[in-house]
Deep mutational scan, measured.
Amino acid sequence: MEVRTIKVFTTVDNINLHTQVVDMSMTYGQQFGPTYLDGADVTKIKPHNSHEGKTFYVLPNDDTLRVEAFEYYHTTDPSFLGRYMSALNHTKKWKYPQVNGLTSIKWADNNCYLATALLTLQQIELKFNPPALQDAYYRARAGEAANFCALILAYCNKTVGELGDVRETMSYLFQHANLDSCKRVLNVVCKTCGQQQTTLKGVEAVMYMGTLSYEQFKKGVQIPCTCGKQATKYLVQQESPFVMMSAPPAQYELKHGTFTCASEYTGNYQCGHYKHITSKETLYCIDGALLTKSSEYKGPITDVFYKENSYTTTIK
């Protein structure tokens, strides 16, 4: 009895394709271990004539594949690729409408935090270190965002349907971005203890939790000093293409032309909904596939993004 075979390709990165001759009487799992086709788990399936010449994702289970996976995804987590594939199996079914010149995501599976993050990423200057993220990001900007969303979920250790947080998501993504040249110098002034300067680099240099107003941050924000008295913390120097200011959701007025974009969060910790506000020729609110415009805006804002380049204080 002759062994019926077909020729397929296996890959971990969709760049390096490895030619395989597979036995049609055995499952993919018996031949390769966990195997995925377009995100779908085909591990328990036997090869079919229609699979001839198709590319299958496999887990990096030998040295060659491990090197290829690390170079593309910059992670050695053995569960990463499987999590990416199972997320992709959902995100490829989502709709990605162009809204006001940006790629958004039609609401499904509690994905409003991903839509808000995706919209924000198209408006701030950011370059990702893992080629996987950078490639998928370019495709997302062009309207094909399924891979990018699935990668975000995998890097953030999230599953489809789980509630997510924009600030946490951005923080994970910033860790995989090139923020080497970003720098922030802060000064804390206390009447009792004097003053202390701190220099922050990388992710810490672009994120701040405690106030939404970048102007206020430049002037000074009140913080408790270690001595128990009130101290003032203010920005001395900022070198970065953008800054992200966050605070627990509270009524906040966004003035046209003073910011790049913002995240609105309605609801409580267990259950809520994100919308995205962007400042173009007027203010726009993007909620999944829905767009509304207004000249002014007041609502429960939790993150505001500002364009920056270089700032030095005039406070002496």
Rank of each mutant, 00 (worst) to 15 (best):
P300R: 09
F56K: 03
I152P: 02
V221W: 06
Q230N: 12
K191P: 15
D13G: 10
M85S: 01
T10G: 09
L102A: 05
N157E: 07
Q175P: 06
I15M: 14
Y234C: 01
C190Y: 05
E68P: 05
K158G: 04
H273Q: 07
C149V: 13
C193Y: 01
F242R: 02
T312S: 13
H51N: 08
Y234N: 02
N309K: 13
T35N: 09
V236T: 06
M209Y: 15
F80N: 06
T103C: 07
Q222S: 13
E264I: 15
Y274H: 00
T159I: 15
H256N: 15
G143H: 07
L212F: 02
K158F: 03
E264Q: 07
V99A: 04
A136D: 04
I105D: 09
G272K: 02
Y137R: 04
P34M: 15
L114N: 03
T5E: 13
L114S: 04
T5F: 14
H74M: 09
N111V: 03
A177N: 07
F217T: 05
S294C: 14
D63F: 07
C285R: 01
A177S: 09
R83A: 09
I124W: 06
P60C: 08
S295Y: 13
K95Q: 12
A140R: 02
C227Y: 04
E168W: 06
K95E: 07
S246I: 02
G288T: 01
K280Q: 14
D77Q: 08
D135I: 09
S171I: 11
Q216H: 10
Q31P: 00
F305I: 14
I6Q: 05
K92T: 11
Q175S: 10
Y172A: 15
T11N: 04
P60W: 08
T282V: 13
T169D: 00
R167T: 03
I315K: 15
Q230E: 11
K158V: 05
N89E: 14
Y297T: 02
T199D: 01
Y155V: 02
T91W: 11
E125C: 05
R141G: 10
L17V: 10
T292A: 08
N61H: 11
P47Y: 07
N100Q: 15
L290D: 12
E144V: 06
S181Q: 15
Q195F: 08
F128V: 03
G220H: 01
V12K: 11
Y155N: 02
A205R: 05
C271Y: 11
L37C: 11
S79E: 15
E215M: 05
H48L: 13
D180N: 11
S79C: 14
V203G: 06
L283Y: 01
T64I: 14
T35S: 12
K293A: 11
T232V: 14
K218H: 04
L173Q: 03
K307T: 15
G161W: 07
K54N: 12
T27W: 11
R66T: 10
S25E: 10
A262E: 02
A262P: 04
N14P: 14
W107G: 07
K229S: 13
A140D: 02
E2M: 08
G161D: 01
K293Q: 10
Q31A: 14
Q222D: 12
C156H: 03
T10P: 07
D287L: 00
T198F: 15
G82C: 14
E281I: 00
I152E: 01
R184S: 14
L186S: 06
Y28A: 07
V203P: 13
S279E: 02
P130R: 05
M209C: 13
A115W: 00
T5W: 12
A150G: 07
G39P: 05
A69Q: 12
Q31V: 15
N157S: 07
G267L: 04
G228R: 06
K7H: 13
K280S: 10
T27M: 08
P249K: 05
N89R: 14
E264P: 01
K127R: 12
C112G: 01
R139D: 12
L179R: 02
A108V: 09
V304S: 04
